[in-house]
Amino acid sequence: MTKDERNTGNNSVRRPDILDRLPQSRIPWKRSKEEVWNSLKNNIDEQPEARKISFGSYILRLSAAAVILLLVGSAAFMRFYTRTVTSQSAEVVNLELPRGSEVMLNAETIIKYNPLWWKFNRKIRMEGEAYFEVSKGNEFTVISESGTTTVLGTTFNIYSRKGDYEVSCYTGKVRVGSVNSGEEVILEPNQKASIDEEGYLAVNEEPPRSINQDWRSGYFKFTSMPVTRVFDEISRQFGFTIKATENLDLIYTGNFSKDQSIEEVMNLVCKAFGIDFVSEDENTYRIIVNAN
């Protein structure tokens, strides 16, 4: 370190120095400028030109998110909003469906559908008994535990209780399908389809019925019907509990009207089989079967 006396101030001007003995130099790049450009170009090709405008501002982004959230939220609400209508015992409920169709629910019946999603999902869930009057061109499907009925513009009645499923077609056509067997049938007016416990479909002809011969006017007609089902109907229509202690393996044919008192109706049915009933309390009857 003996050459400390160099004056740094002058050197930049003169440069008569050792550095001049060095040849010109370059940086030994491993990648050429073109290579770098090509890999950059791949990336910028994916870049949308409109980027700067579209999601530039925070507010815009925030409001886009809010709009999406709102859309998803309201779609979910529309999709899952369910209207449920139930009828109690001894009650008949009238109800209007979307697009002007009407339903009449017999006692103890439940119906569910998504009114706000009706455009996309025309399905109604129903258990109990209901009469449908469908306005023209309005197509939908009624789903119950063991059967589905697709409306093709018409009036019809569905009975779906305790595994029994019966559809009566009054006017127009309906398609009835069995949930368990997958069988399908198209019903014409005055035909009745029933699905048995194994899921098999049967179609029977029915005499034409007017409204005053059916539950809608408080008239109940039974043809070869298990008596337990008759008692069930009576208890529904009058809001009573009817207890049958044993399995009653009896078949009943006859009718009753809601204009009658429950006592009259019970008498009518029981007399036919020689069985008896006693009043257990205000709203309960017990069936008594005599040993002989």
Binding site: I18, R21, L22, P23, S25, R26, I27
Partner: peptide
């Protein structure tokens, strides 16, 4: 700091190498 050098130089190879 490695660099590539252009070949024209008054220096002799060995000396130049050392200098570089």
């Amino acid at each position: 700091i490695e660099l590539d050098y252009l070949e024209e130089s008054p220096e002799e190879q060995a000396q130049l190498k050392e200098l570089i």
